[in-house]
């Protein structure tokens, strides 16, 4: 057997061992990493039904969905007009109000500032929508970011109107 041939066979063994080792370590580490992801009990709480019959125009309620606050705002005609009269060019994250609601009267969105996750205060700020006290983001009556460090509009969760008085979020 020549030296060269022997070296090639050794190289093969080394590479194969290293590759098998890497796969083995990866397989062993993955459960340790994945155990930190949301568990079955957390995922099981993925949807919430809300009775909205008692909410009056101009009023806003906050419900908890997946541990996060969801704002359900019954907007007045004035607030709807305000949200719809803005031209998209003025928006940092251009989205039509029409695309953010299923029923113009009801704005359903995650009450979480998209900057660093604080809960904005309602009916505050320069655009009469929401204002985040943490780092000063202003949102309009459609929950769109207008001023401040937040990068995008407040998120709209998945929801459906089960009937006129009930919304199912998630």
């Amino acid at each position: 057997m020549s030296d060269k041939k022997q070296k090639n066979r050794r190289d093969f063994i080394f590479t194969a061992t290293a590759a098998a080792g890497a796969v083995g370590v990866g397989a062993a580490v993955w459960p340790l990493v994945d155990q930190m992801n949301p568990d079955a009990s957390v995922k099981a709480l993925a949807s919430t039904e809300v009775d909205i019959s008692s909410v009056k125009p101009g009023q806003s309620i906050t419900v908890v969905w997946r541990g996060k606050p969801v704002f359900i705002k019954r907007r007045t005609q004035d607030e709807i007009n305000k949200a719809r009269s803005v031209s998209l060019d003025e928006l940092k994250h251009p989205e039509k109000d029409e695309d953010r609601v299923k029923n113009p009267e009801w704005l359903v969105m995650l009450g979480i500032c998209t900057h660093l996750g604080c809960v904005p205060l309602s009916d505050k700020g320069e655009y009469d929508g929401w204002f985040c006290p943490c780092h000063g983001s202003h949102y309009d009556t459609s929950g769109r970011i207008r001023k401040g460090p937040a990068p995008i509009n407040m998120e709209i969760p998945e929801y459906v109107f089960l009937n006129d008085n009930t919304i199912k979020i998630g």
Partner: peptide, 17 residues
């Protein structure tokens, strides 16, 4: 962020870890 929290917000799994 979800992985760090172990949920969809800061909650019990976050506290224990």
């Amino acid at each position: 962020t979800t992985w760090l929290w172990g949920g969809f917000s800061v909650d019990n799994p976050t506290l224990t870890r």
